[in-house]
């Protein structure tokens, strides 16, 4: 198991390195410098600016210097917000995005997990069809449609909840969190239903029932553990999806989080911000994929004993 953890973790390092390299060169090859359209800037000032951001140096030494800074955890200065570093911008934006993402994941796991298991216990009955139809709706309804519709109904027509901001008014976190979590709740519901259905038809469940265990114990102790493996393995991709989903949610609900900074940076051609955010987000995604893989492997007894046997 330790070998598996180590080798799987080591695999992540080149991934992160490649992400940094590709992003760096793609960003640098994009035409149009960040200071090109500021006509009022004098040539000398522009030269000084470019020197400050190392744009006058050859590409490869820019890359080497960037890697050097990165090794010290420095993501560089922002082009568009003078005097502020990318680290500072991430430090202001990320806690908001992290909180939003956390609520969304919790909503996805609670609503999705419970309805998936409930559906799997009585397949092909109303108890199955109703939650699964809702899940299908959740998958087909894009976030950027669900969000405005919820705003329209609960914010504007019913006036129950605030429609923008984050932490400014009571209840303003409800709509964005729910909107972001809804699609993932749908996927989690389908995955946990599928996982539970498969597990509940296994021999060891029949054995557990034959032992005379109460159904509650069979489901919660024996069924859930195996049935949730697909959900746990899905957590990594879900995490990545929630991060990019936050781009849209934060734009719709006017939340000043990392997702909104990122979209603005793309429009502003704020190279260092794009680069810094990409490196930061990609590293997070790689780490979460790793964690969700490890957790899923640990939960799968067949895989665990196989890995243990290899040592």
């Amino acid at each position: 198991m330790l070998n598996f953890i180590l080798s799987r973790s080591m695999q992540s390092i080149p991934v992160i390195f490649v992400v940094i390299t590709i992003t760096f060169f793609l960003v640098r090859f994009a035409p149009g410098g960040p200071f090109d359209d500021e006509k009022s800037v004098e040539p000398e000032v522009k030269a000084a600016l470019e020197a400050q951001y190392r744009l006058d140096q050859p590409l490869f030494s820019q890359y080497a210097a960037y890697l050097g800074d990165l090794a010290q955890g420095d993501l560089g200065p922002s082009f568009k917000y003078p005097g502020r570093s990318v680290n500072e911008l991430i430090a202001t934006g990320f806690p908001v995005t992290a909180e939003l993402g956390l609520y969304a994941i919790l909503i996805a796991l609670c609503i999705g997990g419970i309805s998936g298991v409930v559906a799997a216990l009585k397949p092909n009955t109303a108890q199955d069809y109703v939650p699964m139809s809702l899940a299908m709706l959740g998958i087909c309804m894009p976030t950027f449609l669900l969000g405005p519709l919820l705003i329209l109904v609960f914010g504007i027509w019913l006036e129950w909840l605030p429609v923008s901001g984050w932490g400014d008014l009571p209840g303003d976190k409800i709509l964005p969190s729910f909107t972001l979590g809804a699609a993932y709740a749908a996927y989690v519901a389908r995955l946990s239903r599928g996982g539970m259905l498969e597990v509940m038809s296994q021999d060891y469940i029949r054995t557990a029932r034959a032992k005379g265990l109460p159904e509650r114990v069979v489901v919660l102790k024996h069924g859930l553990r195996g049935g949730m493996i697909p959900v746990v393995a899905y957590l990594g991709p879900a995490f990545a999806g929630i991060l990019s989903g936050s781009f849209v949610i934060e734009t719709i609900f006017q939340i000043h989080g990392l997702g909104r900074f990122y979209v603005q940076a793309a429009f502003n051609r704020d190279y260092t911000m794009i680069l810094g955010c990409t490196v930061f987000l990609a590293t997070l995604i790689v780490v979460f994929n790793l964690l969700s893989d490890l957790l899923a492997a640990w939960m799968n007894p067949r895989l665990r004993s196989q890995l243990g046997g290899n040592q």
């Binding site: 080149p14 992160i16 990545a240 991060l243 990019s244 990409t278 987000l281 990609a282 995604i285 994929n289």
Partner: peptide, 9 residues
């Protein structure tokens, strides 16, 4: 590796 890249960028 490509999976890990945020496709948005």
């Amino acid at each position: 590796i490509i999976y890990a890249l945020p496709f948005m960028i």
